[in-house]
Design a protein around this nucleic acid. Structure first.
Lengths: 146, 146
DNA sequence: GTACAAATGAAAGTTGTTTTTGTTTATACG
DNA sequence: CGTATAAACAAAAACAACTTTCATTTGTAC
C-alpha cells in the first residue's frame, strides 16, 4: 500500500493521517501475510524512531473495525492481522509455513446452508471458513510447517 | 455421559478415574453446548465441595488432547469446550443464542479444495469450518443473540 | 494394606492486550 | 501562516485468561 493510497483510506475513515498509521498500513501492505501486533511493532519501530505497543494495538483495532485489515485468532491465543480491503464475501487460503494469505472468491456454502436449515430447522447467520495448507511456493520447496 | 461410561473413557486414556474428571465430563455431557473453563468450574464446584480452577484447565486440556472434547476459540479470546466424542471428519453448527452445538456430517469442501489446488498450485492440509446461527428451538422463539 | 506414581490446591507467575493519564501533534479556521 | 482544539500518542500500570510450581493428597497395582 503506497503512501498516498494509505492517506486516502485514512481520510475516508475520518482518521487523522499520522506517520504511525501510515507505517502500520504500509507494513501490512508489504507482507501479504498475517502478523501479530508485536511483529508489526518490531517492523515499524525502526522507520518511526519509536512507537508504543499500545499504539500499534489501537491502530490495528481501528483498521480492523473499518474492515481494512482482517483479524484472525489462532490457537496460540494471539491475534493476527493482515491487510484485506476486499469487501466482498470471501474466505482465505492461509499458508501454514510462510503465513501468506490469499483471497478465495469461492465459498460454496450456500447449498450446505440450505441443507442445514432443511435438516435442523434452525437459521444460519454466518460462517467461518478458513483453509490451511501450503502456498504454491512453499509446496514446491517442500517446506515444513514451523 | 454416565458415570461408568466416563470411567471407561478415562481408563482407555490411561488416566486415573477421579471424581473431578468424572464431574467435568458429566458437566459437559449434560449441556450439549460449549462452556468456558470458568463456567465448567462454577458448575462442578457444588457437586465436589471444592475444586481449583487450574485443575479444571488441566482436565479440559487432557480431554481435548484425547479428542473427547473439542476446544474452540471465539473472538472474546477465551477458549470454550464441548463434548464431542465423534471422531469422524465433521463440522459444527453452533447456536449463537443458547450455545448449543450440533454435529454436521456434511462438509462439502472436497470440490472446493480441488479447485484451490488447481488454481493456486498450493496444497490444502486442513480447514476450519464453523456455521453460526440459531438452533431450531431458539429460532422458533425468536431469541436474540446475547 | 502398602508403595508409588499420578492428581490436586494454593499461590505466584506469565503473556497478550487494554486502560488511564498527561503530553504532543494533525488539522480546520481565521 | 499562526492558533485553537480535538485527536493521537507514550509510559506505566492494570487486567484477564491461563499456566507453572511445589508441597500434599489420592487412586491403583501389587
Amino acid at each position: 500500500m503506497e503512501h498516498e493510497q494509505g492517506a486516502v483510506v485514512l481520510r475516508s475513515l475520518r482518521l487523522k493521517v499520522t506517520p504511525r498509521r501510515l507505517a502500520v498500513m504500509n507494513c501490512l501492505g508489504e507482507e501479504r501475510a498475517y502478523l501479530s501486533a508485536e511483529e508489526v511493532w518490531h517492523r515499524v519501530r525502526p522507520r518511526l524512531g519509536s512507537i508504543g505497543l499500545p499504539t500499534v494495538y489501537r491502530i490495528l483495532d481501528e483498521l480492523a473495525g473499518a474492515h481494512i485489515v482482517t483479524r484472525i485468532f489462532r490457537s496460540d491465543r494471539k491475534q493476527y492481522y493482515f491487510l484485506c480491503p476486499n469487501q466482498e464475501h470471501h474466505h482465505h487460503f492461509v499458508c501454514d509455513s510462510c503465513r501468506h494469505v490469499e483471497d478465495m472468491d469461492l465459498c460454496g456454502l450456500d447449498g450446505m446452508t440450505r441443507e442445514i436449515v432443511r435438516r435442523s430447522g434452525g437459521r444460519v447467520l454466518s460462517h467461518i471458513l478458513q483453509v490451511n495448507g501450503l502456498c504454491a511456493e512453499c509446496s514446491k520447496q517442500n517446506r515444513e510447517m514451523p
